[in-house]
Structure formats: C-alpha cells, structure tokens
C-alpha cells in the first residue's frame, strides 16, 4: 500500500468515529425499549462503535508496520539521556 493511501485510511478512522458518535447517527439505536443482551440499545451501540475504533486503530498499527518498513528516526532525547 502506498503511504498516501495509508494516510487516507488513518484520516478516515477518526472521521468515521466522530460521525458515528455524534447526532444524528447516535440517536438511531433508540433507548431502553430494545435491549441487546439486556444492555440498553444506545449503550450497546456506543460500546460497539468504541470497539470498532479500537479494532481499527489496532489494524492501522499493524498496517503501518507494513507500509513503513524503515523505522522512523529514534527520538533524539532517547540517545541523549
């Protein structure tokens, strides 16, 4: 994958997260009326989006290793101490 495409993905993830947790989409699951495994739908929705974002970030981390084979320059201060 080209670095530009990786950057596009990395940009998409927080954007998608923001869209999913802000109104109007966050209003979609409704309230306590339709619980999921006993958890109110909107709480279950928030946790699902949250886990999705965490999974996405984890996938991005794995991907970034492939895209940028060369390690980034080590922080200066680590060698100065």
């Amino acid at each position: 994958m080209r670095p530009e495409k990786f950057a596009a993905l990395a940009f998409l993830l927080p954007l998608l997260g923001a869209i999913l947790i802000l109104p109007p989409l966050v209003l979609l699951p409704g309230g306590t009326a339709s619980p999921l495994f006993g958890i109110p739908a909107n709480i279950a929705y928030i946790f699902s989006v949250w886990l999705l974002l965490i999974g996405g970030a984890y996938a991005l981390q794995r991907l970034s290793r492939q895209v940028f084979d060369t390690p980034s320059p080590p922080a200066q201060r680590a060698s100065d101490d």
């Binding site: 923001a18 109104p23 209003l27 306590t32 619980p35 958890i39 109110p40 909107n42 709480i43």
Partner: peptide, 29 residues
Amino acid sequence: VAATYARAAEAGVNLDPAANFGPRWITIT
C-alpha cells in the same frame, strides 16, 4: 448485566437518546 440494566427505570437513570445526545453531548466530546 441484564438484571442490573432492568433496574434502570426504577433507579430513574436518564437513558433517553434525545435528552442525552444533544448539544451538551457534542460540546463535551
């Protein structure tokens, strides 16, 4: 879990989407 959330109404916790996800939700985010 289910039994706990079943008490939500009795406890008076506010789970209503319209009341929760308004301007204050956006602001705090």
